[in-house]
Design a protein around this nucleic acid. Structure first.
Lengths: 200, 200
DNA sequence: ACCGTAACACTAACGGTTATGGTTTAGAAA
DNA sequence: TTTCTAAACCATAACCGTTAGTGTTACGGT
């Protein structure tokens, strides 16, 4: 971004982009299962091996852009205003992400994803990776450090909020509803309740 | 179980069992990736197509037994003692399941699973199916009915508790820790807090 | 004894993915 | 400039999970 990238890197990026664009277009035109890797490669005018040197799998072609999902989440934790509480910051970010992927323009894409078991599976394990990153970011947050177990649980809950809300009738209301629960869980987890304190 | 099954069904069950046993043995001996479907079929002395008429995929060979996981969870909800609160019943069941799969005898199997991305992916989406069943069971529970969103969220949290605790150093303590959070989340979700009540 | 069909077999293919080995070309070094 | 290196790309063929197509056997009911 700072230094002018050489021709080589520009060409590489262009190739990658062309593959991604072609793939998405074909998938939406003919359906994910009806388009083969060889079709995509031919239409993008590259070799199959080249395609796989840019994307790890067929599914990765669809989620090309969702790698910054991870970054936005961790950023919401590490880059929030000083003294802003954790959970509301995460809630705002999840709201934004949900709004983004439930927008009308994204509808055909997500309909396609929901229709393909392979794509659903891929997304699920992608989200779990995101949850792990988020857990790390939460654990590194200054102030009272809860257990890593608590951090990992909260991170999972946040990801759950996203993927559940995405498929609800009123996504934003669902995010609010689930985050009220997460807030309560966080309070309990943060204070380490039960560890020889309120032994019930 | 009640009537004596005919020879046909016995033979079918025997074939299925032989396939499953052979597969698991080969997988543990040589590693999941190093064993092909054709190897398993040959060793079990069946055709490849026969193997796939018994198991939907290679991964399903490994999780053959885990189909009752789903049943045990929903049973823990629908079949619990009258007036026993929901969350503790679920906690007990998850404890049992975690204990079961962290037992020493199961260690090699789970090490294999954790080492294979394909198997992890398969397990993850299996768990999500389980979560949906659990959510349905919770929603059908008599008494005060929370939103379906709340039920689905709690179901996910419970599944999260299982899969997180499974890979912690002290699984049973982790289950307790996470369930304290789930309990709090459930209380908040159940009472519908925030819906024009405690608007904050 | 006969028939319908469930279980199984064999072959060949399909589609995602990878290994192999070769060609071009950007960009640094001489 | 010329030369060299390595990155990007290409073409081919194979591997492996999975499925379709097409029988063949033998169980269980009539």
């Amino acid at each position: 971004m700072t230094v002018p990238p050489g021709r080589r890197e520009r060409k590489k990026a262009a190739t990658r982009q062309k593959i991604a664009d072609t793939a998405l277009r074909l998938f939406l035109e003919r359906g994910y299962d009806a388009v083969g890797i060889r079709d995509v490669a031919a239409e993008a005018d590259v070799a199959v091996t080249t395609l796989f040197s840019h994307f790890a799998s067929k599914e990765a072609l669809v989620f090309e852009l969702d790698e910054d999902f991870e970054q936005r989440l961790t950023q919401a934790v590490t880059g929030r205003a000083p003294h802003e509480p954790l959970i509301p910051a995460l809630r705002r970010e999840i709201q934004a992400l949900v709004r983004h992927c439930t927008a009308d323009s994204a509808a055909p894409l997500w309909r396609m994803i929901d229709a393909s078991p392979a794509l659903r599976k891929y997304e699920e394990s992608m989200r779990l990776r995101h949850a792990e990153s988020l857990a790390t970011a939460i654990a590194a947050d200054p102030g009272p450090s809860p257990t890593t177990t608590v951090c990992r649980a909260i991170a999972r809950f946040v990801i759950d909020a996203y993927s559940l809300a995405r498929e609800e009738a009123e996504p934003e209301a669902a995010v609010d509803e689930i985050f009220r629960m997460i807030e309560a869980a966080w309070e309990v987890g943060r204070s380490g309740a039960g560890r020889a304190v309120t032994g019930r």
